[in-house]
């Protein structure tokens, strides 16, 4: 497969959030600001690349019947690495993302790519696929986070754009659903 296409498909054509509708929980939960969204996206990217590479390396060693539990163990190991590193070096972001860091384990994107792509392809393409999908996820979270931050608190990446408070509802839970609903409607091919 063409490696460039393999990398870029995660951004629009097969974007995990806007097109494939995977990983909705972290998408809605942590996209209160652009920084949080991108931070979560990058943490997921690391797990995706790591688990894709390892799954692709061990794909011939694992019996077919226990492959899903084995993939989950691989993914959980990388999530634990992310958890410990973030706790040590980025305590503020770690506190903001909270519960959603351990929950990367059950993010359907990660298991989905392991099962649908890495278990059948070479190590190189799996790494590129993981990187593309992960950055596509970070891109989607960044956009949703920016929209919610601009509308909700009239700032972007923490910088105030306009004086005043904005529409607080977009920072709260209902705004996440509403903003994502409109974004998907805008982006999808009708």
């Amino acid at each position: 497969m063409n490696q460039l296409g393999n990398f870029t498909k995660g951004f629009l054509k097969e974007n995990p959030v806007f097109v494939m509708l995977l990983g909705m929980c972290p998408t809605l939960g942590v996209s209160t600001s652009a920084i949080n969204g991108i931070g979560m996206g990058l943490a997921t990217t690391f797990v995706l690349v790591g688990s894709n590479v390892v799954v692709s390396l061990i794909k011939d060693l694992i019996p077919d019947k226990v492959r899903i539990p084995s993939y989950i163990v691989v993914i959980a190991s990388f999530v634990t690495i992310v958890e410990l590193v973030m706790q040590g070096f980025m305590p503020a972001l770690f506190a903001q993302l909270g519960l959603f860091i351990p929950l990367i384990v059950v993010n359907c994107i990660v298991l989905g790519r392991a099962e649908a792509f890495a278990s059948k392809q070479s190590v190189g393409s799996s790494a590129i696929d993981g990187l593309g999908m992960g950055l596509g996820f970070a891109f989607a979270l960044g956009i949703l986070g920016s929209v919610r931050e601009v509308l909700g608190s009239q700032s972007l990446f923490g910088f105030k754009l306009l004086p005043g408070d904005g529409m607080l509802v977009f920072v709260l839970a209902p705004g996440a659903f509403i903003a994502l609903g409109y974004l998907i409607a805008l982006i999808r091919k009708a």
Partner: peptide, 9 residues
């Protein structure tokens, strides 16, 4: 999905 998300909102 979009209308479902708005409803959920």
């Amino acid at each position: 999905v979009p209308i479902a998300l708005l409803t959920a909102g």
